[in-house]
Design a protein around this nucleic acid. Structure first.
Lengths: 135, 135
DNA sequence: ATGGATGCAAATATTTTGCATTTTG
DNA sequence: CAAAATGCAAAATATTTGCATCCAT
């Protein structure tokens, strides 16, 4: 079992990139981004680093309806995402209402140790205005 | 483009099985179930049939945190699922609260054409009592 | 020096697709 | 009979793992 987490160049590159970006990216995208800027990092390492960061709670994972996993540096507190289907613009939203509701529903049915996943998808104002579908 | 949807034996088998079962199953599981009862259906066909049914809104798809896709015949109205992590027992829950909340949040941020995904995971009373982890 | 980290290639796992054949309407 | 559906094998995706080597501490 990994006792400590060492500071390697690759790890630094991944963390740095996530720090700059403010949108969800797949492991593959992040890997491509890095290579494009001339940074040598293996895809395997990107995957492993992201996994480590997720476990440490330093980044967020989200899964699109199509199954792709996207990663992003987010605020450490529990929250959900409102994502634009077209431009991928993302808004973090705190959801005390949802938290309370899920907890209550779970209680009513005798469920404990509850957790949940929630993502909201829609079209942001910009994209709606431009009505520019790029599909 | 497929104009109509024909009635084939295989399609009937899949629909029938989904009709009996009342829990989420993966395409692979459904395929195995069918073969086990001596019904000859190709895995490809199972996938294609499920896809068709989903498009027609006749069945529900859910994705576990691990990414597996599960299918189930559900009530036609919009709802969410409360799923036991251990025994996979599933409860359908209507979520007017959530619907309203997501709509409001989206509005506040100028998002339109909104949709969302929500799944609740926990430990059901039975499993909590038995404390039987079968992992 | 020593155990975690890396990265290549290969293995997994899941879902999709090409295409010849069968079946439904 | 024509179009749709089937099913096998192969392809496409995405992520994980074996293992020899490298490097941070």
């Amino acid at each position: 079992m990994p006792g400590v987490t060492r500071n390697t160049r690759q790890r630094g590159e991944v963390v740095a990139l996530l720090g700059e970006l403010n949108e969800f990216r797949s492991a593959q995208q992040l890997h491509a981004d890095l290579r494009q800027r001339g940074v040598g990092v293996g895809l395997t390492t990107v995957y492993r680093t992201l996994q480590t960061l997720v476990d440490a709670g330093e980044i967020d994972v989200m899964r699109l309806p199509n199954g792709e996993q996207l990663y992003r540096r987010c605020s450490p507190t529990h929250h959900h995402h409102l994502v634009c289907r077209h431009c991928a613009r993302t808004v973090e939203v705190a959801g005390p209402t949802v938290e309370t509701w899920t907890k209550r529903v779970a209680d009513e049915h005798g469920f404990t140790d509850v957790g949940h996943t929630l993502e909201i998808f829609g079209t942001c104002a910009q994209c709606a205005a431009g009505a520019q579908r790029k599909e």
